[in-house]
């Protein structure tokens, strides 16, 4: 890992030096243990800020569209910058999606792909600690050694605190890149896909309703899930539109339902299961159970995969004459 980090820094320094890119988007250490922050490196002198480790959890694709927006109020000529970015499998798929949706230009992007063995979910570590905070942590290949704010130490198997998405991830290498560094990741885990969704589907309607009432009552409408998601780039989200006003702005449960149904639905055929929304939620709501339901349906009904290549059409911007109609009362 250390070595990949070193290679990454060297490559980025080269790219900045020879003018291939103007800015590089990567991860840097944040001040709290097991946390990173996106960083924007503009000069070869700064490349040492870049880190590559098991806590590069956030999806950097989210940070790209803003760089290609013309600065507000700027007069005269403006050329969008040339942007470099480091991408895990999921980041790269989000980038593919954003390129297809014309939010970022392929020809001004330099993607460095790094194979990924899965990222740590900070919430899971927090849960392992219980009610105390995380004072310090060390990560090696197999485990996370944590010290709680109560001074107690604990060794946690890394597999137990991997993000849920990472445990099932089938695309651990960038699907689109200009350069790949590091080793090929070990082969994707043999897991039953959508097991969580299938299990949930087997519950009674009342149980399912009550589950979501419980989960969504926790929601504080902070929109961190939306803001962290690369797909949620709308200038004005339906949740905040006033004409028409789709829903109220409070945490009235009915409105929270409409928000979450709408948000999840807008991910149909677009969600790459990167887990950024889940990691961002300050209330630890399992949004994945909602996202994955749609992903499962998209895969099963339309035999579509999300954002694996630039050529494939997105599931909801295409159709087949013989698409499933079994859901219809009178087809």
């Amino acid at each position: 890992m250390k070595q990949v980090e070193e290679t990454l820094r060297q490559e980025v320094a080269k790219l900045l030096e020879d003018g291939t890119i103007d800015v590089f988007v990567g991860h840097e250490a944040a001040s709290l243990p097991l946390k990173t922050s996106p960083c924007f490196v503009r000069s070869p002198k700064e490349v040492d800020r870049l880190v590559w480790n098991r806590i590069c959890t956030s999806n950097l694709a989210t940070y790209l569209p803003q760089l290609f927006k013309r600065p507000v109020g700027l007069k005269g000529e403006w050329t969008p910058p040339k942007v470099g970015v480091v991408a895990k499998g999921c980041d790269s798929r989000s980038i593919v999606g954003l390129i297809k949706e014309k939010q970022i230009p392929r020809d001004r992007l330099f993607i460095i792909g790094i194979g990924c063995e899965g990222m740590i979910d900070r919430h899971s570590v927090g849960r392992a600690l219980g009610v105390v905070g995380l004072a310090d942590a060390k990560v090696d290949d197999k485990s996370v050694q944590v010290i709680g704010t109560d001074g107690r130490e604990k060794r946690i198997d890394i597999a137990d605190v991997l993000a849920a998405s990472c445990r099932e991830c089938q695309h651990r290498e960038a699907v689109l890149s200009n350069l790949t560094i590091g080793e090929t990741p070990s082969s994707a885990p043999e897991v039953s896909h959508y097991a969580n969704v299938a299990e949930f589907e087997s519950k009674s309607p009342q149980e399912r309703w009550e589950h979501w009432v419980g989960e969504l009552s926790r929601c504080i409408r902070c929109y961190a899930c939306r803001q962290a998601c690369p797909n949620c780039y709308c200038e004005e989200c339906f949740a905040e539109e006033t004409a028409p006003k789709w829903l109220g702005v409070t945490t009235d449960l009915s409105d929270v339902f409409v928000f979450h149904l709408g948000r999840a639905f807008h991910q149909a055929g677009r969600c790459v299961d990167c887990g950024a929304c889940v990691a961002a939620c300050p209330q630890g709501i399992d949004l994945r159970l909602l996202n994955q339901k749609i992903n499962k349906d998209v895969e099963e009904l339309f035999e579509a995969q999300v954002s694996l290549s630039l050529e494939e059409a997105e599931a909801l911007s295409s159709f087949r004459m013989e698409d499933d109609q079994s859901f219809m009362t009178e087809p």
């Binding site: 996106p38 960083c39 504080i220 409408r221 902070c222 929109y223 961190a224 962290a228 961002a280 300050p282």
Partner: peptide
């Protein structure tokens, strides 16, 4: 500003943030 996602988390978890909006339903 490039890093900040523009969510409401920091304000909503903060004990002193007190800005509010008024809307009709």
């Amino acid at each position: 500003g490039l890093k900040c996602l523009g969510c409401g988390t920091c304000a909503y978890v903060c004990p002193t943030c007190h800005c509010f909006d008024i809307t009709d339903e």
